[in-house]
Design a protein around this nucleic acid. Structure first.
Length: 679
DNA sequence: AATATCCGTATTTTT
DNA sequence: TACGGATATT
């Protein structure tokens, strides 16, 4: 029998891992061994006799849950830990609703709409209710979707939500209410739910007098990681389990709450002790960073409006000050980062022990080019929009129809790929197929999919052969292997994509990658759901050959870096307007969240922290003009600059360029030589 | 009714 | 850039 000695916990961690409380809050500062403590608690519970299947471990990403559990399995050598039920709130809700969805009116095979699908649905409603042509411009579909989501996630009424977060839409309250109703009914008719619905339905079930006790009866312990980033619905779900006798542990750090934009509220963690009558354990000892990095980070949080009254103490008192680097422009910044990364590597810090963090996905564009030029391998996390590309949506739509023939968005998208079929004919075809009239409970023989195989379609003659290829995709589809299914899809899309996309061959190559992912997911249903609920988080998840390099630099949005740690961290584009992002400054709380974001970024560093910012910025990101403006250091850093060693990056110098062996520079030497041979 | 073409504008984080 | 929207053309 393994004991908690295996975990080498300090007194507070040990207390958190073993506390015999019905409700427990662990306030865990950055780098305080939060994950380890949580995993140790899971192990402690299992060793104490709790069945792993009766533990529900809710994490922010499913990757986090998987890593946690496999780590636990490794440390303890206890195979049972793998049987713990883990996942995100959304993925667990999905799993639950596949079993219990009937109680809330969902039919098997229901579709999970991603953010873009959801927005499209609001777009349709906007159109069909005649709001698009109104003389006063109606909010665009993304805004309408954002309003609906905020209402759902905060539990705040529509008018209050508009007043508070969307004041410029206040005059549209009545038509907006119409649109929300329309979309609610439409989702139901389409047998579809959006992200928010997953949580709302779960809450509905678990708070229900009949279903609630049964659901809670399957569970002995609920543990929630990153509790500071939960919203009202999620807290209600946790509370419902607690009220039904389930023990609850939540772990988080109010100083790292960075998902307010998504409806998360810091109040959940602040009010947890009262609401749940919980024991509280605080972890303040930081095992990650050297003291000078913590000094700067503590000072940063000291400026926060809502003081959390918690300072991190380093277990590692020595160490060098963080570095604040002023760069002439973005190119200098890229050069500086590359130089430093390679220098650190020479000192023995592997690339994967180093990370570059930034506020938004495109902030790494220039750096990525420079890294490629110097032959430095990297993987990028966050800020990826793979799922949103049109051709991937095409593929997912085609697959979705198999499980949910009532999915009108999917029909619309697929049909529009046929030659000469635009919005009007797509609608006509759907009408012939009975999409919108047929309900998932109706006989399958009358489903739009069945009719599609037999009925004459009102499409131009040029589209006839393409429609046949699409029919072939659906022929006996339930008995066909996934690989065969993807081959049929390949045949269909090879016929229709060239008319829509100039780079059809590249997109067909992506289709093969999707096929591989689908095979890995195990089944069509699992693949479709996984891709929506847990899209590929890094470029490496999409890359064809996974073992091209065994060492790589991590590039990541700060959001996606949550929970990570590296020996050397570079925070780039630390200019006002980027951190904080101009977009986020609409209200006070937005600015506060940006400060916490910088705090998260800085506290990822173990030994070395470099914060860089370019003085000169191009005015237009896209254009060819060389117009530029001058940036200022982030408002968060100015007051704490004395905690940094200040450095000016030297101008980029071709001769001094450090290039990694095996990098592209070598290739160009080869080419140069070759040109000598052939001249 | 679909599509070709042109113009203007957006600018974030993620389940 | 790249996409949506408006206008002109097939």
């Amino acid at each position: 029998m393994h004991t908690l000695v295996d975990w080498d916990l300090d007194a507070e961690q040990h207390q958190a891992a073993t506390a015999d409380a019905t409700a427990l809050l662990v306030i865990a500062g950055a780098g305080s061994g939060k994950t380890r403590t949580l995993v140790a608690r899971v192990a402690h519970l299992v060793h104490g006799g709790v069945q792993p299947e009766r533990i529900l471990l809710l994490t922010f990403t499913r990757r986090a849950a998987a890593e946690m559990l496999s780590r636990a399995g490794q440390v303890t050598g206890d195979e049972r830990l793998r049987r713990v039920n883990g996942g995100t709130f959304h993925s667990v809700a999905h799993r639950l609703l596949q079993r219990e969805g009937g109680a809330v009116g969902l039919h098997p095979g229901f579709t999970v709409l991603d953010e873009a699908d959801t927005a499209d649905l609001y777009g349709l409603a906007r159109q069909e209710l005649g709001l698009a042509e109104a003389s006063v411009r109606f909010p665009k579909k993304e805004t309408v979707a954002a309003i609906a989501s905020r209402v759902a996630n905060t539990g705040t009424g529509l008018t209050d939500t508009l007043d508070r977060s969307f004041p410029w839409c206040r005059d549209h309250a009545d038509p907006l209410r119409e649109v929300l109703r329309h979309v609610r009914d439409r989702k139901r008719a389409n047998n579809a739910v959006d992200f928010d619905d997953l949580l709302l339905y779960w809450r509905l079930l678990v708070t229900d007098d009949v279903h609630g006790p049964r659901l809670a009866g399957d569970v002995d312990h609920v543990l929630v990681d990153e509790y500071q980033d939960t919203n009202v619905a999620q807290a209600d779900i946790v509370a419902a389990y607690a009220e039904r006798g389930v023990d609850v542990t939540v772990v988080g750090d109010d100083a790292q709450s960075i998902y307010g934009f998504r409806g998360a509220t810091i109040d959940n963690i602040l009010s947890f002790p009262d609401r749940f009558a919980a024991d509280v354990v605080t972890l303040e000892r930081n095992y990650r960073s050297v003291q000078p990095i913590l000094d700067a980070s503590n000072r940063l949080m000291g400026q926060a409006l809502r003081r959390h009254g918690k300072d991190l103490h380093a277990d590692r008192p020595d160490g060098v000050q963080p570095v604040l680097v002023t760069c002439g422009d973005e190119a200098e910044q890229s050069a500086y980062v590359c130089d430093q990364v390679l220098a650190a590597r020479e000192r023995g810090v592997a690339l994967r022990e180093q990370a570059v963090l930034f506020r938004t996905g495109h902030h790494s564009d220039a750096l990525e080019l420079e890294l490629a030029r110097r032959g430095i391998p990297f993987r990028k996390f966050g800020g990826l929009k793979f799922l949103e590309t049109a051709h991937v949506k095409d593929v997912m739509a085609a697959l979705r129809l198999l499980d949910n023939p009532a999915d009108e968005l999917a029909w619309h998208r697929v049909l529009r790929r046929l030659d000469g079929v635009g919005p009007a004919r797509a609608r006509a075809v759907q009408d012939v197929l009975g999409v919108g009239r047929w309900r998932p409970g109706d006989p399958p023989a009358t489903s739009p999919l069945a009719r599609f195989r037999t009925v004459d379609l009102p499409v131009p003659p040029t589209a006839a052969s393409q429609a046949d290829l699409l029919r072939a995709v659906y022929e006996g589809a339930d008995d066909v292997a996934l690989t065969e299914q993807f081959e049929r899809l390949g045949t269909f899309f090879a016929a229709v994509w060239p008319a829509h996309y100039s780079d059809a061959p590249a997109r067909l190559a992506d289709l093969e990658r999707l096929g591989e992912l689908a095979v890995r997911a195990g089944s069509r249903q699992a693949f479709v759901a996984d891709l929506v609920l847990e899209p590929p988080s890094s470029t490496s998840d999409l890359a064809g050959d996974p073992h091209l390099d065994d060492d790589w630099l991590v590039l990541s949005t700060i959001h996606s870096a949550k929970g990570g740690e590296w020996r050397a961290v570079h925070v780039i584009h630390a200019a006002d307007g980027n951190i904080p992002s101009d977009m986020a400054l609409r209200d006070k709380e937005g600015a506060e969240e940006e400060r916490r974001l910088l705090y998260v970024a800085m506290t990822r560093a173990r030994d070395e922290l470099h914060v860089t910012f370019p003085l000169r910025y191009h005015i237009d990101r896209f254009g060819t003009s060389s117009r530029h403006g001058y940036a200022q250091l982030s408002r968060f850093l100015t007051p704490i600059a004395d905690h940094f060693t200040k450095v000016a990056a030297t101008p980029d110098n071709e001769v001094d360029d450090v290039v990694m062996a095996g990098g592209r520079q070598i290739t160009s030497v080869d080419k140069a030589l070759e040109s000598l041979w052939t001249s």
